[in-house]
Simulated assay, not measured.
Amino acid sequence: MTGKAVRVSQTTITELMIPAYANFGGKIHGGILLSLMDKVAYACASRHAGTYCVTVTVDKVEFLQPVEVGELVSLHASVNYVGNSSMIVGIRVESQNVKLGTVNHTNSSYFTMVAKGDNDKPVTVPPLILEDGEQVRRFIEAMRMKEIRQKMKEEMHDAKSTVDLSQATEMLRAERCIIQMA
């Protein structure tokens, strides 16, 4: 299978933030931004895979600054890593106030997408051709993120199976909760 360069599938979507997207304070709802991130992740991943893709996980959603009504939001997506059928797409969100000429980095996130065939089964995606040091760094960072996510999943599974309710009172003593079991 022939590889594809990162630049081939890089995708940017820009959208005007309208009042219907905002809360009562005039700030854009996080769910609107997540929906737009999902769209750009799909566009980027499907360009690389050459087939339909689905979102599997969303990691590290950071809302760094609010987005205001009237701003232009640009979502920049790039395939950072490929596995057999999965891809990790890095997304950088920037808002632009056209009146002031300012651009703010407002959000970052990583979406894991899986390529699907006509039978709805995962299909192999092309290898990723890395053409510069930044792309190599992002690929390695995504590999590590994937490893950490797997370790965390295993640790959470272990934690669920080892919770001893008789120790709960002591474990939760310094937390902001009240245990009132009948």
Score class of each variant (00 low, 15 high):
R149W: 00
V61L: 11
H29R: 11
H29D: 05
A142V: 00
S161L: 10
A43T: 11
M143L: 00
E15H: 10
V61N: 00
T11M: 03
R92D: 07
I179Q: 14
T112A: 07
V82Y: 02
M143H: 01
T51Y: 08
F139V: 02
E154I: 06
K116G: 01
M37Q: 02
Q150G: 05
L165F: 15
C177H: 03
K153T: 12
D120H: 12
V58N: 01
E15N: 06
D120Q: 04
V89H: 13
T112Y: 10
S78D: 01
R137Y: 11
K116F: 06
I129H: 08
K39V: 10
V163Y: 05
L130W: 09
Y21H: 15
F63H: 00
K153Q: 14
Y21F: 13
E170F: 09
D132E: 12
E94N: 14
H76D: 02
A77R: 01
M145P: 06
T12G: 01
K4M: 09
Y52G: 00
D120S: 03
Q96S: 08
A22D: 02
M171R: 15
P66V: 07
T55K: 00
K153M: 09
F139G: 07
M145K: 15
Q96L: 09
A41T: 08
A159L: 15
E15L: 09
A5I: 06
I28N: 01
F111E: 08
R176V: 06
G101W: 12
L100R: 14
S74L: 07
L172Y: 02
E175D: 13
